Simulated assay, not measured.
Amino acid sequence: MSQSSPEPSAGHARRALLRGGGLAVAGLAGVSAVALDAAPASAAAVGPWEYVAPGGSIQSAINAGAKAIQLGAGVYTITTPIVPTAGCTIRGVGQKTEIVAGSAMAAMIAVGQGKAIDGVYLGDLVLDCATKATTGIDLYIVGTTGNYKGEPDSMCRLDNLWVYSPVVDGVVYRGTDTQATSTSRVRVRGAGQYGFHIDAPDNWWTSCEATTRSSTGANAGFYVGTNAANNFFQACKAWYVRGYGWHVKANRNKFIGCEAQDTKSHGWYIEWDRNTFVGCVADTAGMYDVDGAADTADGFYVADGAATALVGCQSFDRRPGGRAAQQRYGFSVPTTMVSGGRLVGATGWDNTGGLIRQR
């Protein structure tokens, strides 16, 4: 009997590839019980998925035509932005998948770059800007040519992401067609300017949060800018911010159950009119531990409330560390907002200047 091994069957070869390549995606038919932290080849294709191993090139897989990219447990160091194509999915395995900026770059992931693109999905991974990348994710989409079924919006999805230490902004939304994009469970830590820099209309944010670090310029957990009309924010939080928690400089936006906590400046600086707020909270503006000073910042500061409503909102200083209260007014609003019944059911406590200031 020959001592040589027989030629492996196609099925055998595929199983060996899976063991070596380490591809495991819940719900993929025929793929199970495979460790993503195995020592894999640089890339392996299984069905529609292209597995790029730690240390491999994500962009090379995209350039080769991959539309569904699975990343494993490990570090992916990049020196230029990752640029997805239309319909591209990039997914990791959670905090064990780290994409790290190895040099200065404008953004770690650049979606659109001022052109038409749609259907991009980014999920389940860490982006470590390492104070080298200016922005974590830049969605800059202009145009709709080639969109799925002729859709008028880009319809991108960001979910379960961690973005650390961008030089300026964590996630930027800009361009006339960055619309119908849904962002959920995204945590931005230590942004130099804005955690979420929002300057596009008709999008959704759910269960997102942001902190910022010291800076010499504008600073907020969420900046909702002049082009950001008709957006929805639900259960989102700005905390430990060296500026405003929320800076709203836009019209026709909806905020439900969102919070500002431990901010240097106003928890909510609502600069523009025609927005609505339901069940939102401000907790300890002027907070000492983010370079704030007592009696300098309010929980909610509404510059123009002619057509803005705050319903069932709460504003308080919880006196962290046993210190005296620091937040000045719970609500500082135009007198007409109170007389017109647009500040409804406001509650709070331990504000140094009182609950409501009518200006």
Rank of each mutant, 00 (worst) to 15 (best):
V188S: 03
Q193L: 06
D159S: 08
Y194L: 07
Q193R: 10
D177A: 06
S214D: 13
G192N: 02
N203Y: 03
A180R: 10
D169Y: 02
P152Y: 14
T176E: 12
E209L: 05
V168M: 06
S184E: 11
G150A: 06
A210G: 04
S214G: 11
S215W: 01
D159P: 00
R213V: 06
G170T: 05
R174Y: 03
G175C: 14
W205V: 02
V172Q: 09
W162M: 12
G192P: 06
Q179E: 12
L161Y: 00
G190P: 01
R189H: 15
G143T: 09
A191M: 08
S215F: 05
G175H: 14
V171L: 13
Q193Y: 01
T176A: 15
H197F: 11
L158S: 02
C156G: 02
V163E: 01
S184Q: 13
R157G: 02
R174S: 12
G146R: 12
R213T: 07
R213W: 01
A210Y: 02
V167C: 02
G170L: 05
A210P: 03
D159E: 08
N147K: 05
S184Y: 08
S154Q: 07
T206K: 10
D153L: 00
M155I: 14
V168E: 08
R187V: 14
G150D: 11
G190C: 03
D199K: 04
M155W: 15
Q179L: 07
P201G: 07
D202F: 14
S182G: 07
Y148M: 10
E209Q: 11
G143M: 07
S165Q: 12
D153K: 03
D202Q: 15
Y173P: 00
P166H: 08
Q193K: 07
N147H: 15
D202I: 15
W205I: 04
Y173G: 02
V172T: 13
S207M: 13
G146A: 11
C208R: 02
T206C: 06
S207Q: 13
T211C: 06
H197M: 07
A210N: 00
G175L: 13
L158F: 09
N160T: 15
E151M: 14
Q193F: 02
A191E: 10
A210F: 01
G195Y: 06
W205E: 04
A210H: 01
E209K: 04
Y173T: 01
N147Y: 11
D199R: 05
T176M: 12
T144L: 13
G150P: 08
F196G: 05
P152L: 15
C208P: 04
V163N: 01
G170P: 05
A180T: 13
G170N: 05
V172A: 07
Y173C: 03
T206W: 09
Y173F: 11
F196Y: 09
G143H: 10
V167G: 04
E209F: 05
